[in-house]
């Protein structure tokens, strides 16, 4: 970190502005990724909840099956043992509900790991950005003082 400070000191204002922009771009990209991952995690958690609702007690009960988001048809829960799970790239696998819950739990944990990684990166980048802004303000101050001094010597 100390080394970074020295490097920052060596840059002129315009370069600092560019670095700042780059950092801000990276940060916004990371935060949007973070939000997307969070959404994915919530979707998986919803899937777990849905799997938990499929058990013997609910067998043969009538349910409403969504054909589209606004059109439902009545149906009966015929099989409470198995569900079909989307595992990506167009492949679906038949699993028991317990296995499906395990599968989604693993997914949630996987996403969680990535979320933590992003969070540390975001914190680090924010630290970098803060020290960069500090250096920028310092440089600006010096520039202003120089201008004032120049104006004073002229007068």
């Amino acid at each position: 970190m100390a080394q970074k400070q020295i490097e920052l000191q060596d840059l002129d204002l315009q370069q600092l502005v560019e670095v700042k922009k780059q950092l801000e771009d990276e940060l916004s990209h990371l935060t949007s990724s973070f939000g997307q991952l969070k959404q994915a995690q919530n979707r998986f958690a919803d899937c777990i909840e849905s799997c938990k609702a499929i058990h013997e007690k609910n067998e043969a009960k009538t349910i409403l099956v969504p054909l589209t988001s606004s059109l439902y048809v009545p149906g009966k829960l015929a099989d409470v043992q198995k569900v079909i799970v989307d595992i990506g790239t167009g492949y679906y696998v038949e699993k028991t509900t317990e296995d499906a819950i395990k599968f989604y739990n693993a997914k949630v944990a996987f996403v969680n790991g990535n979320l933590e990684k992003i969070q540390t990166t975001v914190a680090q980048k924010q630290g970098n950005l803060r020290s960069l802004v500090d250096v920028m303000q310092y440089k600006l101050q010096i520039q202003q003082q120089e201008q004032k001094a120049a104006a004073a010597s002229k007068a």
Binding site: I84, I87, G88, T89, G90, Y91, Y92, V93, E94, F103
Partner: peptide
């Protein structure tokens, strides 16, 4: 795409031989 396919590959490795697999066409 590579990441997604790798995840699917790992998932296949966990499956039993008689597991039912469906493809979305």
């Amino acid at each position: 795409q590579l990441q997604e396919n790798k995840i699917v590959q790992e998932e296949f490795a966990l499956l039993k031989g008689d597991a039912n697999i469906y493809k979305l066409i």
